[in-house]
């Protein structure tokens, strides 16, 4: 067991982990931050995306020890200070960008990273950026629409809700 310390959603945390403990496992099992989901074992689905030092990272593909000292952000820390949904979260609700909700935390975290580096992405840029996030429910239509709306673009001409 090795001690690992990091900042998660602005709070200092630490714990004893095995060398093989993944960051996703540390968040879920040690910190009970179960909003980060694990949907595969090959770093393909993106349900586990978190922010590590501001970068979108698949937390199932990173050892907890590798995040020692890092500033980690998870879905639980995304809402506004008053608890209301942030702009991206609100856009997902407004445009029905989620159904079962399992991929949603990863989608929201990826979308936040995308909009940070590209504040007004085109449809093609959104679709390309989401290559590492699988959703089985929505056919992606409303996820792409929600992210474009969250970037301040008018999505009213895009067919249907």
């Amino acid at each position: 067991m090795t001690q690992v310390s990091m900042t998660v959603n602005g709070k200092s945390v630490s714990g004893d982990v095995e060398g093989r403990t993944l960051l996703s496992g540390f968040l879920r099992e040690h910190l009970s931050l179960t909003g980060t989901h694990v949907g595969c074992d090959t770093a393909q689905c993106g349900a586990c995306v978190v922010h590590v030092n501001g970068e979108a990272v698949k937390s199932c593909n990173m050892l907890a020890l590798e995040a020692d000292g890092a500033d980690v952000g998870t879905i639980e820390g995304q809402a506004n200070a008053d608890g209301s949904l942030n702009v991206i979260q609100q856009a997902f609700q407004d445009h029905h960008g989620l159904q079962c909700g399992f991929c949603t935390p990863g989608m929201v975290m990826s979308a936040a990273a995308l909009l940070k580096e590209n504040p007004r992405p085109t449809e093609a840029e959104v679709r390309k950026y989401l290559e590492g996030n699988l959703c089985r429910c929505t056919g992606y239509h409303n996820i792409v629409k929600a992210i474009m709306a969250a970037s301040g673009q008018d999505v009213s001409s895009i067919a249907a809700e």
Binding site: T34, T36, T74, I75, Q78, A79, L85, Q93
Partner: peptide, 21 residues
């Protein structure tokens, strides 16, 4: 009516309660 989904709030904030949780 296209009422917005109330369940979304918990899913969007990481507060869902899935079986593995």
């Amino acid at each position: 009516a296209s009422s917005k989904r109330r369940e979304d709030v918990r899913f969007l904030t990481g507060a869902g309660n899935y079986t593995d949780d």
